[in-house]
Design a protein around this nucleic acid. Structure first.
Lengths: 250, 250
DNA sequence: TCAAAAGTGTTGCATCTACACCCATGT
DNA sequence: ACATGGGTGTAGATGCAACACTTTTGA
């Protein structure tokens, strides 16, 4: 019997330490499609180790002892995209016994990124040559084979997004600081997968009272469209007693 | 340097095993108040050890290696109440670094119990004398001082319940198999903390199509009220791609 | 016969939906 | 001028809140 095996027996019998805690993040943004309507896309990481070596997986890593789960998620996000999220909330803790060869509980977060941030960052990465080789963006309806239960996790994240867009303002998380009502409507259409009446959409969001009209316009091929700004006094979604997000710093 | 300290250093540097995973459950039911309107109540356990010895805490325990979190929650529930839940879903994973003296991530579940089950079980416990000494039911608006961050957790659970009752059928989780519309309305009123118009309430739930009228009536002091049965073909709440509940078995 | 809860009808208001229509710009 | 998206107006449908009213029982 080796020292190592003695340690492992001791540990497993006294506490629950053979269970490891990981944090993963579903990072969503609107891809600027060339020509057609925008759609949702997310970054995946190609695994370099077993299990599931060479398969694509959600960005993430082990939770460290000195870090709150939400901070681990934000770190993950920074490491794969270099960006701060415009919205971040916990999705679910997945802990089925057989979801991994070893016992892993994954606390999964759910992040939205602004479209313009992603575009700028992608260009910067390409220019600098520091872009991580093993990270790639995928359309959510053209995903590759995924490691672990990550396909199911992404499916659940999309379900939550589509639900939440109905009773909160999370769609703003995809947009830059100033945007037209058509931009906002296209974001909703991309999330919901159906087209909305521009006239009625306008009235609904104006009635919401979360939009601040600016005196600037976006000029293009047709009549200029007024630019709006989001009222940052209100949260994108009411998270109740939890506040904006439980955090380690405080 | 002892063997124990060597082990702990080794473990902490290679993996995340100094983080332990606990499962706790907020178990809610409607208390049958003597005379007045019913209100929400939940069982708490008096702690016998440090930290927070003698303080009240949510029922729960360590997640074991061979058990899914949801099964650990159900086990917790059976141990403290002897009952199976009528509704059970994950609430949130709490993982702030300073929420406990040692590093603990708690996956918290949220359960509803039928009122009549609780009454019957409480009587049986009293008769048998096997009732756990250190378990006690509290009204949610008369809670004692709680251990850890459990007060905040309960607050969040109640917020979720009040939200969810608006767009799902979870209130049925408090009621027995057959019930009158007044029973159902009182459950909603207890959850929401406000009174509802009986006429409009009737039309709304009847339009929902989830109630099956029986040909039986409850006779009392006044005009008999028809008994209804819940249509068990539909879930109490749409949980999306996760299905009824992620489970270890299957 | 009276009180009180069960159950039905009706009215008004707010909101959503569909769609007709005018406005302002680049080409 | 005209095509196109920006933006306004409006009529019908739907849903909900308020409340009057009828029905059925126990006391």
């Amino acid at each position: 019997m080796t020292l190592r095996s003695i340690m492992e027996v001791k540990v497993s019998m006294t506490r629950t330490e053979e269970i490891r805690v990981a944090v993963s993040t579903v990072i969503l943004t609107l891809r600027a499609s060339a020509g057609g309507e925008p759609g949702l896309s997310l970054p995946l990481v190609r695994r370099t180790r077993e299990p599931f070596a060479d398969r694509w997986a959600l960005p993430g890593g082990w939770l460290t002892a000195t870090e709150a789960p939400v901070d681990a998620s934000a770190r993950t996000l920074a490491e794969t995209t270099g960006l701060a999220p415009s919205y971040l909330e916990q999705l679910y803790a997945f802990g089925a016994v057989d979801r991994s060869p070893t016992r892993v509980v994954s606390i999964v977060y759910w992040a939205l990124l602004r479209q313009d941030d992603v575009v700028a960052q992608s260009a910067a990465h390409l220019a600098s040559g520091r872009a991580p080789e093993n990270v790639q963006w995928f359309d959510v309806d053209q995903l590759p084979e995924l490691a672990f239960d990550h396909a199911k996790i992404i499916e659940y994240a999309l379900w939550r997004l589509r639900n939440k867009v109905g009773y909160s303002r999370v769609a703003h998380g995809f947009l830059p600081a100033e945007f037209t009502l058509a931009d906002l409507r296209e974001a909703y259409e991309a999330i919901l997968g159906k087209s909305l009446d521009p006239a009625n959409f306008r009235r609904q969001v104006e009635a919401g009272g979360n939009l601040l009209p600016t005196d600037r316009f976006r000029t293009g091929n047709h009549r200029p469209a007024r630019l709006y700004r989001y009222n940052t006094d209100v949260e994108l979604a009411d998270r109740g007693p939890l506040g904006p997000e439980e955090s380690s710093t405080r």
